[in-house]
Design a protein around this nucleic acid. Structure first.
Length: 316
DNA sequence: GTCATTTGACCAAG
DNA sequence: CTTGGTCAAATGAC
């Protein structure tokens, strides 16, 4: 898989990074043990996507941490953030520009060392590219593929980092309102043919996250504006458009229902598995949401969560 | 033929 | 006028 940037910032999500790396290793092991049957092929695909998502998580965390407290040194990103957002009214115009929308920015590694960022679970269609003043690399403009079919207004801007060609600055603008998620869909498909190996993986995965990410609630009081700290994106079928609250919690704060996360040991009870989501919150993007979906679907209870679990707030 | 990408032009904001 | 963001025709890939 592609490179992952991991800094040595142990005080800011470093442990999360370690654990996510562990998860990634587990997924690789799972992939290695899988055979070639059709059912297994599904799990193979799922494992691959989990791995991808995990890597993204690592990238997001390290991106956030590297920026926290250290000031922002992102010319292109600043330029994007600098752009004033106006036109808050919904008056329809032929060309709506600079619409007031939620924006959040992450830095991700390239996909397989290629020229595009790692897959984020959504399908995007490129609609423009622009040379940006002061930036070495052009910025690509993408919108959700389901813009026309489902009216999804989510867009993103992708720009290769000046200082490291292997990294991309991705600015997500607006939340997905479309009912689609590649990773989630694959997870649901896998859930329809669950496999013991997947269960085993999940158990390990859940335990790892649950236990070792505790104590990360200590987070910067104030995240850099324009970066992911407060930017919600809810690309979830279970989180309808416009329903994403604007949380003021820190990026790694535990959800209010954190007590529901940790106590579930490995058992065959799928509901208990579903309650094993990691007790940390990463607000930078939709990474964790998708990860949660994958985990939920894997254990055979797609879309089912504890009664007191508000998924939209969790991933907001 | 369909769909995604490329690319120059256009528009709004500063 | 400059710049960033979007549109839409042209082009390419499948």
């Amino acid at each position: 898989m592609e490179s992952v940037v991991v800094d040595g910032n142990g005080g800011c999500g470093g442990r999360v990074v370690v654990e996510l790396s562990h998860i990634k290793d587990l997924v690789r092991q799972l992939e290695g043990h899988l055979g070639g049957s059709q059912t297994q092929e599904r799990c193979r695909l799922l494992a691959s996507q989990i791995s991808s998502l995990t890597e993204r998580s690592i990238g997001v965390i390290t991106s956030y941490c590297s920026l926290d407290g250290g000031g922002r040194k992102r010319p292109a990103a600043d330029a994007a953030a600098r752009s004033p957002l106006s036109d808050a009214s919904d008056a329809p115009t032929k060309k709506r520009r600079r619409t007031e929308k939620v924006k959040h920015q992450v830095r991700v590694s390239s996909a397989a060392g290629g020229d595009v960022p790692a897959d984020d679970g959504h399908s995007w269609r490129k609609y423009g590219q622009k040379e940006i003043l002061g930036a070495k690399n052009p910025r690509g403009y993408y919108r959700c593929t389901h813009r026309h079919t489902q009216g999804c207004a989510a867009t993103k801007q992708v720009q290769r980092a000046d200082e490291d060609p292997a990294l991309f600055d991705v600015v997500y603008i607006g939340a997905h309102t479309c009912v689609q998620s590649g990773a989630a869909a694959a997870a649901v498909a896998a859930a329809q043919a669950p496999e013991q190996g997947a269960h085993t993986l999940l158990q390990s995965l859940s335990a790892s996250l649950t236990v070792k990410t505790e104590g990360l609630a200590a987070a910067p009081e104030e995240a850099p504006q324009g970066w992911a700290a407060t930017a919600p994106c809810c690309p979830s079928p279970t989180a309808p458009s416009g329903r994403c609250p604007a949380p003021e919690r820190s990026p790694f704060s535990a959800p209010s229902t954190s007590e529901n996360w940790g106590a579930s040991p490995a058992t065959s009870d799928s509901n208990q598995h579903a309650a094993c989501f990691p007790p940390f919150e990463l607000v930078a993007g939709d990474v964790q949401f998708e990860f949660g979906e994958v985990v939920s679907a894997l254990v055979g209870v797609p879309g089912e969560f504890p009664d007191d679990f508000d998924i939209s707030s969790f991933f907001a």
